[in-house]
Design a binder for these strands. Structure first.
Lengths: 340, 340
DNA sequence: AACATTAACTTTTACGGTTACATAATTTGT
DNA sequence: ACAAATTATGTAACCGTAAAAGTTAATGTT
C-alpha cells in the first residue's frame, strides 16, 4: 500500500543528500539550523521512522533480549517475566520470548533460532529436561560466541555466567525453623519438583533445620517426587500418620496437601501448620489462606534484565565479572500457620 | 571475542566470490557440485549462520510477531500467549512480547517501538484504559501502514481487522440456562470487569437467559463493578439475600464469592450452585472445585497466530477478507454445581 | 569455422541507515 | 588581498545477504 518514508526518498524530495537528512534528523551540529528544521519538519510530516532493521545491521546490536522460559503458565515464571519485560522496556530493549516447555530440544532450538543477530543476549531458566540430562553445551556455545546469558532460578554451576537466584536453602531453613518455633514436632516434607535444582536445595534446607533442632527425619512423612500423579497417589495415605506441620516445596504440593487435609476435617492452623512455596494470587484466595515463602518474582526479573543490559552496554574489555545475585525471600504469614 | 563467520570471510578464505558462497549455501543449481560441497563443508566447519538482521533487511520481513498483552499474570492471557507462541514457532516465527499493563500509553508506545520493521504484524488484546477512553488511532494507523493486526478477546468494532473471540454472549446464556435447569430461582450476577467489552457481553447473556425463562432481574443480587475492592465490599452483604445460584463473570468474582459462601457455612452445591469464567488450574484445586466456562485460551492464541501469518504470507493482492473467528467455549461441570 | 548455448562464476546493485572523508563555499586572520 | 579555518553539504564505504546481470570458457550445432 502506502510505502513508508526512507532517507532516500526524503533526500530526493528535498534535494539534499541522504547523509544530510540522516545527520539533520540526528541533530548533528554539522548541519545548519534552517536545513535541520526543514528536514525535521518534512520528516515528521511524512511520519518518517528509521528502519530498525537497517539500524541494527549497521550497529550490530538489536537492543533485543531473548527470554527462554520453561512454562509461562507457572505464575512464578510469569512474574519474573513481567519483571524482565518492564526493566528491559525501561532501558529501551525489546523482549523476544520463547517457551521451552521444559524440553531440551525446544531450548536448543530457541537459542539457535535467535543466535544470529536477532538478540543481544539471553535471560533464561533451565528446562527440566535439560537439568535432568545435564547437557549444557548450548549455553556454553552461546557464551563463547559472545552472546551473554543470565540464568535465573534454575541455574547450573557448570555454566559460567551471571545468575539471579533466590536463597532457596536459607529460605527453607528459615521457614522450617519458624514451624518448629510454632511447636511443630512432625513436619511433613512434600515436593513434586525433586528433579529441579531449586527443589533439592529447599529439601536440604528442611533437613538442615531439623538437624539444627535435633529432630530426626521421618521418611514416612516425606514425599519427594517429580511428577504430580505420583504425588497425588502418595498423598492419599499421608494423613494416616501423625503430622502437625507441612512444608511444601512447590505450589502443587502446597495446595493439594491443604485440600486433602481440609477434606479429612483437620483444622488448619490449629492442628496443622502449613507453609508452602507459592507465587500466585491464589495462596491468598485459599481458605484458609496459605502462608508462603514469597520469591519476589518481579525483582528477580528486574535484576536479571539489568544485569544483562549492564553487560551488553559495558565498554569492550570493561565487562563486569560474572556474579550471582541472591534475591531475598520473604515469609508471608497468612492463615495456615498459627501466630507466634 | 571470536567473531562470527560471514559470507565475505568464507569467500575470501575459499578464494571465491561472496555470491558463490551465498548461492552454494542455498543450493543453487548455478553452482557446480564440487564447489557447493566445498563451500557447504567449510561453512559448517566455521559454524556459519546467516545473519538474520541482514536477511530481514534484504527481504523486508522479519518473521517476527509483536504480541501486546494487557497482563501476563492473568492466566487467560498466559494461556492465549502460549498458544500464540507455539503456533508462531511452528511456522518459523518469533514473538516479541510487550505488556501494556492495561495502559493506553504503554500500548501506544509498544506499537510505536515495533512498527519500524521489527515486526511484521501484531496480535493484541486491548488494554482496559484504551477501551475506557475509546482511543483506537494507533490501531488504525498501524493497519493503514500495512502492518496487520489480529485482536483477540477484547476487541473493538471500530477497528477493521481480523479478530478472534469467544462467544461470550452465548456462553453466558448457556451457562445461566444450565443453572436454571438445576432449579435455581435466584441467580446472583457478579462481575469485576464491567468496564470490559467481554464483561458487558457476558452480563447481557445473563439477562437474555433470565428473560427467556421469564425470571425477573433482581438488582439486589447483582454486583457489577470494575474494581476488586468495591466488589469485595459489596460482597459482604450479598449472602443476606436469598440466593441459590451464582454466575460470576471473572475469576476474582468467582473465587471470592465461593470463599465467602463457604465461610457463611453455605453448602455448595446443595444450597448454592456456582458457575464462573475462569482459566487457571485453580478452579480445579478449589474445594469444592469450580464449574467454569472454559475459554480455550491456547486455541484462541493458535487461531490468532495462524490468521496473522496466513495474511502475512498471502500473495500481494490475495489477502483474505477480514474475519472474526469465534472459538467455542465449554461448560466444565465440576463440584460447584449439582448434577442434572 | 562461425555462432549459439550453457555451465560456473564474478560483478554489481539493492535493502536503509550511519559515518569517515572529501569538497565547496564562506568567513576569519594577518 | 590571499591563505587558513570554518561551515555546510555531498560522496562513498560499510553492515551482511540476496539476486539480477555480466563475464568467461567450454561445449554443441550446422
Amino acid at each position: 500500500m502506502k510505502q513508508k518514508a526512507t532517507l532516500k526518498q526524503i533526500a530526493k524530495e528535498l534535494n539534499v543528500s541522504v547523509s544530510t537528512v540522516s545527520k539533520a534528523l540526528s541533530n548533528s551540529p554539522e548541519i545548519s539550523e534552517p536545513t535541520k528544521k526543514r528536514v525535521q519538519e518534512f520528516a515528521k510530516l511524512k511520519n518518517y521512522k528509521p528502519n530498525n532493521v537497517a539500524v541494527n545491521l549497521k550497529s550490530k546490536r538489536s537492543r533485543t533480549i531473548g527470554v527462554i522460559i520453561p512454562n509461562i503458565l507457572n505464575p512464578f515464571f510469569a512474574k519474573v517475566f513481567s519483571g524482565i519485560e518492564k526493566a528491559a522496556n525501561d532501558r529501551g530493549y525489546n523482549v523476544i520470548t520463547c517457551i521451552s516447555n521444559e524440553s531440551l530440544e525446544k531450548e536448543v532450538h530457541a537459542m539457535d533460532m535467535l543466535s544470529n543477530g536477532t538478540i543481544d543476549g539471553f535471560i533464561l531458566s533451565i528446562a527440566e529436561e535439560t537439568q535432568a540430562v545435564g547437557d549444557f553445551k548450548h549455553f556454553k556455545e552461546a557464551i563463547s560466541d559472545d552472546i551473554p546469558i543470565v540464568m535465573f532460578d534454575r541455574i547450573s554451576d557448570e555454566v559460567n555466567c551471571d545468575k539471579v537466584i533466590v536463597d532457596d536453602f536459607d529460605s527453607a531453613v528459615h521457614a522450617v525453623n519458624h514451624m518448629i518455633k510454632l511447636k511443630c514436632k512432625n513436619i511433613a516434607l512434600l515436593s513434586t519438583i525433586d528433579n529441579l535444582s531449586v527443589g533439592k536445595l529447599r529439601a536440604e534446607g528442611y533437613y538442615k533445620a531439623l538437624a539444627d533442632n535435633n529432630i530426626s527425619v521421618n521418611d514416612n512423612i516425606t514425599i519427594l517426587t517429580d511428577n504430580t500423579e505420583d504425588f497425588d497417589e502418595k498423598l492419599q495415605t499421608l494423613f494416616d500418620k501423625k503430622i502437625d506441620g507441612i512444608f511444601a516445596l512447590d505450589e502443587h504440593a502446597s495446595v493439594m496437601a491443604m485440600k486433602a487435609a481440609i477434606k479429612k476435617g483437620i483444622k488448619i492452623p490449629d492442628e496443622l501448620n502449613v507453609i508452602g512455596f507459592a507465587d500466585g494470587v491464589w495462596s491468598r484466595r485459599l481458605t484458609p489462606s496459605l502462608s508462603t515463602v514469597s520469591q519476589h518474582g518481579p525483582e528477580i526479573g528486574d535484576a536479571a534484565a539489568n544485569m544483562l543490559i549492564d553487560r551488553l552496554e559495558a565498554k569492550e574489555g570493561e565487562e563486569p565479572e560474572y556474579q550471582t545475585k541472591v534475591i531475598k525471600t520473604e515469609l508471608r504469614q497468612r492463615d495456615s500457620t498459627r501466630k507466634l
